[in-house]
Write a protein that binds this DNA or RNA. Sequence first.
DNA 1: CACGAGACCTGTTCGC
DNA 2: TGCGAACAGGTCTCGT
Length: 304
Amino acid sequence: MPELPEVETICTVLRRGTQETPSVVGKCITGAHLLWTGTLAEPSVRTFRSRIRGQRIREVSRRGKYIRIDLTSRTMLIHLRMSGNMMVVPRTESLPRFCRVYFDLGKRWRLVFSDSRKFGRVWLTRDPDRVLNGLGPEPLSSAFTTRVFASRLFGRSRQIKPLLLDQTFIAGVGNIYADESLHLAGIHPQTSCALLSPEQVRLLWRSVRRVLREGIRRQGASIDWIYRGGDFQNHFRVYQRTGDRCRRCGAAIERLVVGQRGTHICPQCQPLLPPGAARATLSSRKTRRPRGSRQIVCLRGDVI
DNA sequence: CACGAGACCTGTTCGC
DNA sequence: TGCGAACAGGTCTCGT
């Protein structure tokens, strides 16, 4: 599940605590329990257990879809992959059904990593940058300008959706937010990035950031049986809305497969134009309406 | 470099 | 109702 907004939400909860649970910052890890050792990416189980004990949590942050927990003398990285979750629970409470790893935080609390599909991974390392090295830019950072985005697209020819999902291209975008961004930008997911007009590039840059921020504001999405507290799922434009009406134009949302991932589009708002037609349409529109664009109008109508 | 298939896993939902 | 198939928020590796 968890994409940038969900991971961000989880980090915020760990960092600030909630009404019921404390912040983990400043707490000491007094014990570590590995119920599914496959969760541990590095180091070995023995080393992990001996090194983690006694470490104090200094800071919780996020990089891409990774949770980063800085400890006294090491850093723990957690990737939730498809079904992972991280939460603080009282020691008096029974462990969640899919708990794979948990940490004792003194006498009253536990930090639990639960993960039904066992895809999630935990690293304990002195050099987190070695793991995080390949990640692309943070899409919400001020350094990620439309020019940076455009330059990273330059010279490439891949289909745009698989590229958005490529964590070395941008960090944090997953299947939901890719579909939502492309719909907001009015771009078909199979469009070759070589065919994107400068205007579409700018629009997509804005859409990605807008959708991610909206996801964070709504504290992420809770879908299927995994409830996480967020409600972005109630505001999806296309994701998992196959057959429903597009909120913008009323056409039926379609599902297709792009790069082996389920993909949702509005066929009206996101036409896949043949290479020649794309240019022709854009230029004819330009002659008619030099400055305004259809997409901008749509965007305005789409503001929530 | 781009793309697809398969692997890693388990749980839920869908279709017959 | 039961049962197998399809599908799921991610990423890695291998082959073409």
